[in-house]
Amino acid sequence: MPVNPDFAGRTFPPSEPYEVSRVKIAEFAQAIGDLSPLCRDRAAAQAAGYPDVIAPPTFAIVITMASSGHAIADDELGLDYSMVVHGEQRFEHARPLHAGDVVVAQTTITDITPRRTMTMLTTRTEITTTGGEHVCTALSTLVERGA
């Protein structure tokens, strides 16, 4: 089933609030081998001017995927996830995410373009605190390979 082009431009409802925790930041930093004390030690992060430990720059994908994953799993979109590869990714941070942030993510499918046997699908996910402060914009390009 081809990808439904009518989904281009559709904005999905915001996610449930996600609370950024010190434990999750430390786990993510460990998994990518980032040994910075700013991701682990609250006192070190505060000495560097942050309210609490900060997340590495790609941590926002954890929150982004939970939101965009919900959007692209919509049955009526018709995307075959087993054939999807990640084409491009971009983050624009207003500030780093830090422990204690409570954020919501809202995803828009910005474009759907068939290209030969493939389909390119781009999403834009806005990550905002529950208080309305914009923290990060995540832009993703997914490629559905032809069968």
């Binding site: 980032d34 910075s36 560097a48 900060i54 720059p57 491009e88 971009r90 624009e92």
Partner: peptide, 20 residues
């Protein structure tokens, strides 16, 4: 990590984009 370790601060990377 390469960029943030060079800068000495994971919070220093404000924009970051790649193509796989």
């Amino acid at each position: 990590r390469f960029a943030s370790e060079w800068a000495g601060d994971p919070g220093a990377v404000v924009e970051f984009g790649v193509r796989f």
